[in-house]
Design a protein around this nucleic acid. Structure first.
Length: 153
DNA sequence: GCCAACGTTGGC
DNA sequence: GCCAACGTTGGC
């Protein structure tokens, strides 16, 4: 079992959007970065834990948790010309991009802000603080438990 | 809105 | 395979 941090702009898809559909499966599509794709395709497994991070807003933060309910499979939106994530280089026979399915987990009692993550000595190794642009990134079990604690879970 | 970081593209 | 140009991300 592994842990991950998934980023989303809340104006696009927020933790509250996921919260509206408890117990239901959500497709995490639209990832168009090769390193993030490799994680989705090769390493993210059913049962893995996800920290849901809200990016590109005035106070970026982790809002809560989700769970992976389906491992990597081809992201069909890449083959849909009407999708904003359409990629003409991808095809059903040779998919380039992958997605996973997630399910709503638990909301944090207090959102954990980027500033709080930065100021915590035991979190200074987080990928988020070193490779801030990577939209799918691994989280260690230690980081996971510290952050859940900060979130009041 | 600015801009630094950094990923991607394409000429050579 | 190098690297300059360019585009995107995302914090501030």
């Amino acid at each position: 079992m592994n842990y991950w941090l998934f980023k989303s702009e809340p104006g696009c898809f927020s933790f509250d959007d996921l919260r509206q559909r408890p117990g239901q499966t959500e497709q995490w599509d639209g990832v168009r970065n090769f390193q993030a794709r490799n994680f989705l395709r090769d390493q993210v497994q059913v049962g893995d834990g996800v920290l849901f991070y809200h990016s590109n807003i005035p106070d970026p933060h982790i809002a809560g948790t989700a769970w992976v309910v389906r491992a990597g499979y081809p992201d069909w939106t890449a083959c849909d010309p009407t999708s904003e994530h359409f990629d003409p280089k991808s095809s059903a026979a040779n998919p380039i991009w992958y997605m996973v399915d997630v399910r709503y987990g638990e909301p944090f009692k207090r959102p954990v802000s980027l500033a709080e993550l930065k100021s915590h000595r035991l979190l200074e190794g987080m990928v988020l603080l070193k490779r801030s642009r990577l939209s799918i990134q691994p989280v260690t079990p230690e980081e996971w438990s510290i952050i859940l604690g900060l979130g009041g879970l």
